[in-house]
């Protein structure tokens, strides 16, 4: 088999591979830019926590639909994720606990609750599907939902772009100008949740956050400009989807982990090859600094 055939044939031959490829590209396109902002807002842990927080809602959707249904589980996941975000925000405003500490408490509770619900009513295989996803079993309706989420995500992101960015840089100044920071923060958390929900049928609740965070971290090693950074993050996610699926097909490995590990390989390469990676040392000697 020629190299070109090896790249093309799996997708030309099998419908499930084509659907998995479209799913990966869709996920990368939506989650990449959100991941960049999540990191720049210093909320990486919250992204991880949120991916666990959606589990009980997804589990209830799973029970209600009587099996794996992205629509039912997605709606449940969105409700659970937003519920945890609201609760964590409320706790951090009413107590001295920071938002990440509140999230950490709630997501662990959610994770345990979700696993309990699925394992009580479903099989171990169902639990594995919820936790690690089934990207090769993505069907048409699931693809439509993912594409819808990505479209909504990119549209909302462009709509709240300016306040979201300026709130990151200088929240104090923005409060003074009358910007509604809390509202934009909640819209942003909504974006995080829906992108995680889009990813969990493909990659599971445990790995969907990988498509958000690892490409974003990779992109940050190559550019200091925000828009190229987000475009690069999306590109890394999409390419990792393509490459990961090929690796999975040719070496008969699980597809979801292959995709995330391909993202990780791009990150490791960037750590070594990027001028601001580990070669720069100490984290403080940016080549972009002019003096």
């Amino acid at each position: 088999m020629s190299i070109l055939a090896g790249l093309w044939e799996p997708f030309a031959t099998f419908g499930f591979m084509r659907r998995a490829l479209v799913a990966s590209i869709t996920l990368g396109m939506g989650a990449g830019p959100v991941g960049v902002l999540l990191q720049l807002r210093r909320m990486s842990l919250i992204g991880d926590a949120m991916s666990h927080a959606i589990l009980p809602g997804a589990a209830i959707g799973f029970l209600a639909a009587g099996g794996l249904s992205l629509t039912a589980m997605g709606l449940g996941g969105i409700a659970a994720g937003l519920g945890v975000a609201l609760l964590a925000g409320l706790v951090s405003r009413r107590t001295h606990l920071a938002e990440d500490a509140s999230f950490a408490s709630f997501y662990l509770t959610s994770l345990a609750l979700g696993v309990l619900i699925v394992s009580a009513r479903g099989s171990n295989i169902d639990l594995l599907h919820v936790l690690f996803g089934t990207i090769l079993a993505i069907d048409g309706p699931a693809l439509y939902l993912m594409a819808g989420i990505t479209t909504l995500s990119l549209f909302l992101l462009s709509f709240i772009w300016r306040p979201l960015v300026m709130e990151c840089v200088d929240p104090g100044f923005m409060r003074m100008t009358g910007s509604r920071g809390a509202l934009y923060h909640m819209v942003f958390l909504f974006l995080v949740v829906i992108n995680l929900v889009a990813g969990f049928e493909a990659l599971g609740t445990l790995m969907s956050v990988g498509m958000m965070m690892v490409p974003a971290a990779t992109a940050r090693l190559w550019t200091r400009r925000l828009v190229p950074m987000m475009a690069l993050s999306a590109m890394v996610g999409m390419l990792a989807g393509f490459t990961g699926l090929l690796v999975s097909y040719h070496f008969r490995l699980a597809a979801g982990p292959c995709i995330i590990l391909t993202c990780s390989a791009a990150y490791l390469f960037s750590l070594i090859a990027s001028p601001v990676g580990i070669r720069a040392g100490g984290g403080g000697s940016s080549p972009f600094r002019s003096h």
């Binding site: 709509f159 300016r162 306040p163």
Partner: peptide
């Protein structure tokens, strides 16, 4: 010290944010 100076934003964009009351969020 409370401003995130590592955030990737240009000098011009930062100054333009001072006109927030004219430009608003959108």
């Amino acid at each position: 010290r409370i401003i995130d100076r590592a955030f990737p934003i240009s000098v011009t964009d930062m100054v333009l944010s001072g006109a927030w009351r004219q430009t608003g969020a959108f």
